[in-house]
Design a protein around this nucleic acid. Structure first.
Lengths: 123, 123
DNA sequence: TGCGTCCCTCACATGGATGTGAAGGCGAGG
DNA sequence: CCTCGCCTTCACATCCATGTGAGGGACGCA
């Protein structure tokens, strides 16, 4: 598919699809006329990228962890340099901390909402 | 305590403590000489702010949800305008999506790490 | 008194993700 | 053939969190 369709199906501005490519996150083919040609699977990948960006990860890190997440759980041991392992462990722990923080605060918001809404209906 | 101590205890540059104040996230007292005076409780609050910022929330949103998270779970119904309720629900759901995305990807990283490390020790 | 360390405000700079628009090529339909 | 919509690249602009430094006041200690 071309950039317009991918943009619509992922709700992502074309500008950003080109930006993600520039950052090495996606690597579309090119048609003879120079148009970018995106594989069907890139829909999910773009959504994944957007989710991670929204969760605070920079493209630099996303680029590093994406290859480890490929669907056919085929381990690329060539990528598994010691520094890479360290990076992955660090990111895993950072993500865990983020999850904990978000969960705590989301639950507090939910609790507040429950209290407020409950009060509203019973008063 | 003064800004230096808070900075050390939270690992936060002074510059950012002033920035958070400018954004209305914290409201320190002032000593006679103009120095900022931070309450003990602000240590936790600053850490909470940093966690939320790191998780991708903008200060604008953090400012809105912070008051609902105060320790003495005393509901401020005055804040509970309809738009506020809507905002909170939206943020709660956004946070849930973030948590899901982070959890999925963190688990995938952990799985990859397990596989790689296991392979390393057994080969 | 002077020096060192903390604090203040103000302001400009940077980096990353994103917006916006110009200038132009390709291809389908009237 | 012309026009319209989609594509290309390039480049400058914006927002936000953060860095950095100048210029100066407050306080404590030798």
């Amino acid at each position: 598919m071309r950039i317009g369709e991918l943009s619509e199906r992922t709700g992502t501005p074309r500008r950003l699809l080109r930006y993600y490519e520039e950052q090495g996150l996606i690597l579309p083919d090119r048609c003879a006329n120079g148009y970018r040609a995106y594989d069907e699977r890139l829909v999910d990948r773009v959504l994944q990228i957007r989710g991670l960006l929204d969760a605070g990860l920079p493209t630099r890190i996303i680029k590093q962890i994406l290859p480890c997440l490929d669907k056919p759980r085929r381990i690329h041991f060539s990528d598994a340099t010691p520094e890479m392992i360290t990076t992955l462990k660090d990111e895993r722990d950072r993500m865990t901390r983020r999850i904990d923080c978000l969960t705590r605060n989301r639950d507090a918001i939910a609790e507040y909402l429950d209290a407020v809404l409950d009060n509203h209906t019973t008063s």
